[in-house]
Design a protein around this nucleic acid. Structure first.
Lengths: 161, 161
DNA sequence: ACAATTTGTTAGGTATGCCTTACAATTATT
DNA sequence: AATAATTGTAAGGCATACCTAACAAATTGT
């Protein structure tokens, strides 16, 4: 039960297990390997790490289960994914596939408060469809961005941080 | 002049060099090391890679310059960063620091079309301030998201892809 | 111009995370 | 129950990307 820091990779494993459980009832290593398109050997290693971090329980040839902590963590990743996907799809009009692909990568690195803001903003937009409708109409008419000029989104500061 | 595939790390180097050039005129390895908080040794390695990929020219103890390709690539990363930062700041009301931090990570993995949509949407919002004003007002009044109920952004599908 | 300081490189090391190959253990088939 | 097929693990490798320490080269100060 070492430290709980999760790499992007381990988060992906948790998420895959979570999704597989919601479909299949029981999940084994091979399922994870297939879902993530990764060798059985690599999955075996990763599962050991998750066990040693106290996030799953798992015995050879047995079923993978979450510990309470593991379940919470997996759910967190899953919810983050869905929040992002929903934003991309419903606000930005991105295809489901591409929305998912982007969410899969961004879910591991976005900060809590940006995520919270995205969630709130998405909800707001979905409750006020006229905003998105109006926006999309203008885009389609080529009037695009502004009523008058084409302007670019470019903040003036220059820095690294 | 090997392949041109850029890892997130190499993109960070390009971006740092680009930013440093806009400030300092001339850029040397040590500047990059300081900006990215990375050892001189690691910078030395990375610069060799950028040279061998044909993105910069650089000789020991000399100044770092972009090749045309390198300049284009660096600019691309920099613009992506700014587009994201601008969205976080102006639409989501995130602090400049946190906006930058998130942009720094996401800039390397976001897809072209999601980025383009974010850019257009940000421009639209900035040209129609009433949208954001109204949204923020509701948030501040605790009326939050919807006019009636609290709903969550949760798409119903479950998948990995 | 010489010493001191700064900057750059090399060598060797660590950690992550994937791979393949070969083998072991389990499960399914008949 | 014996054999076949599947699933899991171990060992050894590879690539990335960082590090420190030691040394080399260049630059700066006086």
């Amino acid at each position: 039960m070492a430290d709980k820091n999760l790499t992007a990779g381990l988060e992906d494993y948790l998420e895959a297990i979570y999704i597989a459980q919601n479909k299949n009832k029981t999940v084994k290593g091979i399922d994870v390997a297939r879902m993530l398109n990764i060798s059985r050997a690599s999955v075996s290693e990763a599962l050991s790490k998750l066990v040693s971090k106290g996030l799953i329980t798992y015995e050879s040839y047995g079923t993978i289960s979450f510990t309470p902590t593991g379940h919470t963590e997996a759910e967190k990743v899953y919810n983050t994914h869905n929040t992002l996907k929903s934003f991309f799809q419903t606000v930005l009009n991105i295809s489901p596939e591409e929305a998912s692909e982007n969410a899969c990568k961004i879910e591991h690195i976005i900060s809590k408060s940006v995520l919270a803001e995205i969630k709130d903003f998405t909800d707001y937009c979905n409750n006020h469809p006229e905003i998105i409708n109006e926006y999309r109409q203008r885009k389609d008419n080529g009037k695009n961005l502004s009523d008058r000029k084409i302007s670019g989104s470019t903040p003036s500061d220059i820095e690294t941080e």
